[in-house]
Amino acid sequence: MNDLLDQDYSLKLAKKHVEEYSKQDSIKALHNEAMECRDCEDWLEIGLEAFRWLKQADQTIRQAAVEGFAVSSSAPNSIATLYRAWLRPCDRAEGLAKEQIGRGFRLKNLTEFREACEFVRQQVRIIDLEDALDEAQQGEVFDEVFWQRAALKRSDQSDSSR
């Protein structure tokens, strides 16, 4: 009789432990997801911190140049390179952030991070426009075809004025 009771008790204990173990498994999975979300937030924060430093450096050096202080001639290129480098991991960070949102998490710094991304993207587009202006000033925007069409246009105008 005692043996039967012991067996029953043993089974109950075992069941309780198995259930606990299973529960821990899902808790662990939830914990891992939460940790991943925190890691993602941390990563975005590192990006934001880098962004603040970079923006500050850009503004400070530009202002120094405006105020007539000596500025290294390599500074504009260095800043441009850093903006481009900052953008590189952004798509992956955005992908990871979307995964967290899909799991129902809310990232406290995502809005600020996205604003930073847009700001840097615009800086890079402006740098491209500066390159384009340089090319134009070198005459590269105005190519052979352009001048041939211009010659035709002048010819049309002088014909119509005769």
Partner: peptide, 9 residues
């Protein structure tokens, strides 16, 4: 463009 001083373009 109008606000920048060299070495900035």
């Amino acid at each position: 463009w109008i606000k920048s001083a060299p070495p900035f373009r």
